[in-house]
Design a protein around this nucleic acid. Sequence first.
DNA 1: TTGAAAGCGCTACCAA
DNA 2: TTGGTAGCGCTTTCAA
Lengths: 364, 364
Amino acid sequence: MVQIPNPPAPASTAPTCSVPAGAVPAQPVPARPLPGAVPTSADVARLAGVSRATVSYVLNNADAVRISEPTRRRVREAARELGYVPHAAARSLRAGHSRMVLMPAPAFPVGPVYSQFINDLQVALGRLDYTVVQYGTVGVHDDEAARAWAELRPVAVLVPGSGLGPRGVAVLKRSGARAVVTLGPETVEGAHALLMDHDVVGHGAGAHLFDRGRRRIGVVVPREPGLEAFSAPRLAGVRAALHGTDATVTELPLAHDEGAATRLAARWRALGLDAVFTYNDEYAMLLMRALQDAGVRVPEETAVVGADNLMLGRLLRPRLTTVHLEVPSGTELAELVDRAVRDPAAAPESHKVLGASVIQRESG
Amino acid sequence: MVQIPNPPAPASTAPTCSVPAGAVPAQPVPARPLPGAVPTSADVARLAGVSRATVSYVLNNADAVRISEPTRRRVREAARELGYVPHAAARSLRAGHSRMVLMPAPAFPVGPVYSQFINDLQVALGRLDYTVVQYGTVGVHDDEAARAWAELRPVAVLVPGSGLGPRGVAVLKRSGARAVVTLGPETVEGAHALLMDHDVVGHGAGAHLFDRGRRRIGVVVPREPGLEAFSAPRLAGVRAALHGTDATVTELPLAHDEGAATRLAARWRALGLDAVFTYNDEYAMLLMRALQDAGVRVPEETAVVGADNLMLGRLLRPRLTTVHLEVPSGTELAELVDRAVRDPAAAPESHKVLGASVIQRESG
DNA sequence: TTGAAAGCGCTACCAA
DNA sequence: TTGGTAGCGCTTTCAA
């Protein structure tokens, strides 16, 4: 979409919209379009024997204009027969706006929580008659990405994470986006924000462990790229919860593979920790397995707390204590978007929407 | 996108593109657009003191036309200053085609395998200068969905699963889609197919268990909606592998929650099975935990085989035997798409692309 | 009740 | 080397 430097090959054999010269010499206004050509509203009009205006009225159920029932039928019939589908680009070009809400597609595997959230959001926005489109932006960053999105002239843009700066927001707004909403750890100048600072997760875990008497607390930080946006705040949250106490926080980088976990577990006793917050339940499972294989007793020697409240945590033995994430409902976000679209001049709202509650089980 | 029955409120206070009547009486051709209006190439042209044609040439690096360096600079400068971003809809309307590849956004949580696949695909298609867009189609089915997609006039459509019929394909092609590719269990008339029949997964599991001497084989079938597309073929594959032998296949519906697993495990001995294929590794974990809690020894009494080769399978005890899925590379699919787009008249290709190999560990 | 026509933003042909 | 201009498909005002 960004550029069209390489138009598709001329496609000599392919069906094309242009009339082969001289092929239809005596039919200046054929009743129906050439087979293979994409039918337009003009084609429908011709077939129905009415004007394009009438076609538009009928197909859009325009109530401002009264069209006779027989005409309506003829138009609908013609549209059906031709397989006519309106051209969204032409329509929104003419209208001067679209109902497209654009989100960048996540570049990393997302868990069930996020998937569910996206889904709810799509449903809720769909109910408000918006269309949600996830735009595949891979390896494109910041302003460049914002420009690419802006080319589509979405009415609203939702950006998870922290990939968008004030300049990007400005680009989008200049291009007609009536609402830019970030879902991330911090507010961005000019954009609405659903503050999803994951520090609450770490904070919950840290406070819980402290309350349970733990003082030397490790925090697993995934080595996987793309996860810093979540892992850094979670770590910071633990730090914040323990600030001013006698507890210590030890950062534990860990790749999501068995070998790494085994190596970490091997030097566990040397680390002298009595608790660990593992970023999420998957890393918890990984580490807990390694710890148990290394003979470290959970929770006696080391308490383990995960996050995200995945099903698998309940299946582990000991059952995994976890931090449950309270994500805003898709409906709420959809309403925020709709409000913002209707009144783009309003001051950006900023809501802290992430809740966290500890679900205590057996591991800590 | 489908319809625009409720245009955004008139937005009296909001910035708008229209010039307030009489507000700028003596300036018929203002040098720069009103603040708040979305800049167009005409604005850039005015500011740079050139024609719109020249702007287009410069910004698209048209090599057919030679523009002097000073002019180029002036144009680029003006574009930058105005924050000009081209209007993709207008461009593709004019061009008569886009480079948009459309995929429906999956309606259910997808695992890391699929995520990775989508990602690779986006990267690969991006390299070929296509733009991938995931379209949120929730609760919209079959032909209706196809129509909604067709409105965007994508150059290609990739449809995972089996939600698209021959009529839908026809709608898309009539609307100018030069390639329709299905990724699912069966071919669809008129569309290219990457046959991803998950029966190979079940087949691999069934054959493996049979070879290991198991004869009374249970197959877990998730109750979750949206998964039938995968679970039915996997079950069928097991059946096929055991067809004509003395082995029996027992279908075991199972919801993805602990209670259901416990209930299933409680009547396990009554079922008289000596093996179970659990649809995937997650259900394997769920069931294996319940079996162990019920005192059923794995693999002695019952062998357990999962699928998808998730990390968690290696962490279970006993380590989970699983069926590894060999998914086609995103690059391959991207090339198929590109080929199809370049030659839409070519006969639809149909490739069986799913491979399955059993990774034997301890559970079966 | 229906039609003619303007124009959304852009590119590409042809002329200067 | 640059500009004028037609027209992509659609909606909507104004006239008939």
